[in-house]
């Protein structure tokens, strides 16, 4: 009675053959599993709210300096190829779709496709990083298009271009960090799903929340993409 622990104490050990999601029992301060699911999801939405407001600072960074220095931001935008930005958008949208499909598979207890969808999502996360690093970060940094005072690209068209690069690296960097966190979370979910069949129609809280996080990463990119690549 002393421990209130959804991970261990809540699991009913009697039927150990059943898949993890069937054995799961909610933490004892919740009355029903629905209550726990609702609470966890609501908590996670609140966490997503904090994430949105974290990015709000970066969007504010963008908005203020874009309005103050439109030339620098238009020029900066022209250093970026919409093809690769668009490709990354497609990659993230597809991965968002597969996460939504994974949740659907959990809801209808299709364990095989649940895992396949998660694997596709992780591949997409890897692709995103690959495109970002190979075609954007590494060549641009090697050309001297670095943030702030480290900017050394000699052919800048506007004296405020270092600010643009600061914004670009901060925004995409913080976003990439979130891709990394989301991918790790989904990797953990995949691990638990493969080893324990932890997610099924009665219990898929962590999968749902990891999915929400991944959708948020997608959501942020949906706005970053036109802001960085298309607006001139």
């Amino acid at each position: 009675m002393t421990a209130i622990d959804p991970g261990t104490a809540g699991e009913n050990k009697l039927s150990s053959n059943a898949p993890g999601w069937e054995r799961y029992k909610q933490a004892e301060h919740f009355r029903t599993q629905e209550d726990e699911f609702d609470a966890c999801t609501q908590g996670f939405w609140l966490f997503l709210a904090t994430e949105v407001l974290l990015f709000a600072g970066l969007f504010c960074f963008y908005a203020i300096y874009r309005l103050k220095y439109p030339e620098a931001f238009a020029n900066g935008s022209h250093y970026l190829d919409p093809f690769y930005g668009g490709l990354n958008t497609v990659v993230l949208l597809v991965s968002s779709f597969t996460v939504a499909m994974a949740i659907r598979c959990a809801q209808i207890n299709n364990q095989r496709w649940l895992n396949i969808n998660l694997v596709i999502t992780l591949i997409c996360a890897f692709l995103f990083f690959f495109i970002k690093l190979t075609f954007e970060y590494i060549p641009k940094l090697s050309q001297g298009k670095a943030p702030g005072a480290f900017f050394s690209y000699p052919y800048a068209h506007d004296p405020h271009e270092p600010l643009w690069w600061s914004m670009y690296y901060m925004a995409t960097g913080v976003h990439a960090l979130h891709v990394l966190i989301g991918a790790s979370l989904l990797g953990f979910v995949l691990f638990r799903s493969v080893t324990k069949q932890a997610y099924g129609p009665k219990h898929f809280t962590l999968l749902e929340n990891a999915g929400l996080y991944w959708h948020l990463v997608d959501l942020i990119w949906i706005f970053l993409f036109p802001l960085l690549y298309l607006i001139h």
Partner: peptide, 26 residues
């Protein structure tokens, strides 16, 4: 994405409220 992938369309309306308050603060 919000309505269908993230489930705001059919989920708990409170979550949508949270998101709207976030946008308000933003």
């Amino acid at each position: 994405v919000l309505l269908f992938f993230m489930g705001l369309r059919r989920g708990n309306p409170m979550n949508g409220m949270i998101f709207l308050f976030t946008l308000f603060a933003f």
